Simulated scan of single mutants.
Amino acid sequence: MMICQHFLIEPTKEQEEKLFYTLYLCRKLYNYTLDQRIKHYKEYGKGLTYEEQQNMLPKYKKEHPEYKAVQSQILQDVLRRLDRAYKNFFDKRAKYPKFKDKYHYTSITLPQSEAKRNFGKEGYVYIKNIGHIKIKAHRNFDPTKVKTINIKYHAGKWYINLSIEVEEEKEKTVIREKAIGIDKGINSIAATSDGELYSNPRWLQKSEKKLKKAQRQLSRKKKGSKNREKQKKRLAKLHEKVANQRRDYLHKISYNIVKHNDIICVEDLQVKNMMKNHKLAKSIANAGWGMLDKYLQYKAEREGKIFIKVNPAYTSQRCSGCGRIVEKDLSVRVHKCECGLEIDRDVNAAINVLYEGLRQLGITA
């Protein structure tokens, strides 16, 4: 199983200049190969493949000697990145690939490199022609298990994402009492069948005034000016703070749930389709339902526990006590049934999610 660990890195001034130059050359190659594909299609009626462009790469490097300063694997990843963009377009997952400017090409990827963690909270990553870059490694990682390294520039800082292969725990004996159902919502990001409600801190809404003010200040700055560049960094830092708050909170929720349960049942919500509702899109995106599912799944797999998604149909309307359908709109927050059950509607839904998950696993509720 692959997991990703995210760290801050601290390149020296000289290393930072080399990283910026590498990004510039990678962006230039990306735009060149995109233009090459467009022209080839217009002339011959078919596009170029990754393999064909890879075979053309040595000739391009000979014609542009400045590319000797860039590791070959970084350049090959540029071609793979463009190939993925085309595949996403043809699979209708994204729009047609666009030419990149410096604001939209901010990372490089190395399929093989050297990353190590020393004693304490420091480590390093070695990149050919750039050197050993300091990593602020706040948690352990096994350098022998690192498969790919991604270095990204964002909001005035440099980050490293390590894709690490970890072994899954051997399957454990499932204890029925440690199964849980989870209902995702907007008022509560997650409600569990145990009756626990994880509140929604609404990070984006709390920061909205600051973000709008920063965005207005940016729009007033002259394009291409240094002041505009500075304001872009300020705005990016505000967005980064909101994203970090969301990730941290969801990691804590998922860790707590996986730690205390052996079976985790969640709703299989079609988040992309739900985002088409413009009245709820911002709230859904801010809640991070998809991110929570991802964190729960990889933590469960890592610990040898069971993670299962169930059909969300009628989980909110069905009574978890007697099975009767009790229709109610979103404004009704308490489930009341003729059978006498009175319970929070999200907890009622979480219990139904648990029952459906156990049914799929063939376990009697």
Results as ranks from 00 to 15, higher is better:
Asn348Met: 10
Phe119Met: 06
Ile3Asp: 05
Thr364Ile: 00
Glu267Gly: 06
Ile133His: 03
Asn227Glu: 11
His251Leu: 04
Asp35Lys: 14
Lys178Ile: 01
Pro65Ser: 05
Asn150Lys: 15
Thr12Leu: 05
Ile127Arg: 01
Ile149Ser: 05
Lys294Leu: 11
Ser188Gln: 10
Lys61Asn: 03
Ile175Val: 05
Ile9Phe: 02
Lys222Pro: 02
Gly323Ile: 09
Arg80Cys: 14
Met56Lys: 15
Gly185Gln: 03
Asp293Val: 06
Ala281Met: 06
Lys13His: 11
Gln245His: 04
Met2Thr: 03
Asn55Asp: 09
Lys226His: 14
Thr22Trp: 09
Gly288Cys: 00
Asn140Lys: 08
Lys100Asp: 02
Arg324Ser: 05
Tyr21Cys: 11
Lys170Thr: 13
Tyr298Met: 11
Lys152Leu: 14
Lys128Trp: 00
Gly185Glu: 01
Asn140Gln: 06
Ala281Ser: 15
Gly120Ala: 07
Val166Trp: 02
Leu34Thr: 11
Phe89Tyr: 14
Leu34Ser: 10
Ser188Ala: 11
Gln53Phe: 07
Asn187His: 09
Arg228Asn: 14
Ser331Trp: 04
Gly156Leu: 08
Lys210Arg: 14
Lys87Phe: 04
Lys28Gly: 03
Glu338Val: 10
Ala313Phe: 06
Glu168Asp: 07
Thr144Arg: 15
Gly131His: 03
His138Phe: 12
Gln217Val: 01
Ile3Ala: 07
Lys213Trp: 11
Leu34Val: 10
Ile151Ala: 06
Ala137Val: 03
Met2Leu: 12
Tyr103Trp: 13
Phe20Trp: 10
Ser219Met: 09
Cys4Ser: 14
Gly304Leu: 08
Ala300Glu: 04
Tyr32Asp: 10
Ser107His: 14
Arg202His: 07
Leu34Glu: 09
Tyr41Val: 12
His104Cys: 10
Gly45Phe: 12
Ala281Phe: 08
Ile186Gly: 05
Ala365Gly: 02
Ile175Tyr: 00
Glu229His: 11
Leu235Ser: 01
Ser316Met: 05
Ile151Asp: 02
Glu122Ala: 05
Lys233Phe: 04
Glu16Pro: 01
Gln53Thr: 04
Arg228His: 12
Ala179Trp: 01
Tyr355Gln: 15
Thr315Arg: 09
Lys46Phe: 15
Met1Phe: 09
Lys294Asp: 15
